[in-house]
Amino acid sequence: MSKLKKENKILDKLKNVFDITGEIKYKKRVSIKADKKNVSSILLFLKNQKGYIHLNHISCVDWIEENKFELIYIVWNPNNKLTVLVHTRIDRENPVMENIDTIWDQANTYEREFREMYGIEFPGLVGRKEFILEDWDNIPPMRRDFDSQKYALENFATRPGREDAQDVREAIQKRSGEELPDFAKKYSRD
């Protein structure tokens, strides 16, 4: 573990200051799990005290089975080239998250996208409600309970395929005499 000295240092520091759990994913990548209310103070601490001045990305994952949204803030330190991922989980039924575009201006774009695509509310977020979509009247489309294919079939008519269009797996199976694996049978056309 002596090689991961820098990584351990920042992880220990964060564990001392905040109530978090965390691990070192691999070299130069530290992942921590924090509570929703701590996120902005962690990010401010990282930015102002530890030199993580660059917000790489904000990502959102829909954990529909656990009824949670997971937000991942990825920040980067240009001096020691370390990346810290701050994971937090928020309630899926009433998703409200703290607005951090006062810390990084570019967070505004991500947050507007999440507001549109996942329906997460960020109090005090500036900008139009409509961001990428136009006249959207369904549930937010990146949520996993939104069935994109069903929506497409209902709204945009499909064209019938060619008569001689073959299923690739079946054609190969017929030609080579191989048995289809079980996972592939699930997607078979018949």
Binding site: P141, F146, F156, R159
Partner: peptide
């Protein structure tokens, strides 16, 4: 994009 929620098909 046949199953996309936002692109037309034909």
């Amino acid at each position: 994009y046949f199953d996309s929620y936002n692109t037309i098909n034909a």
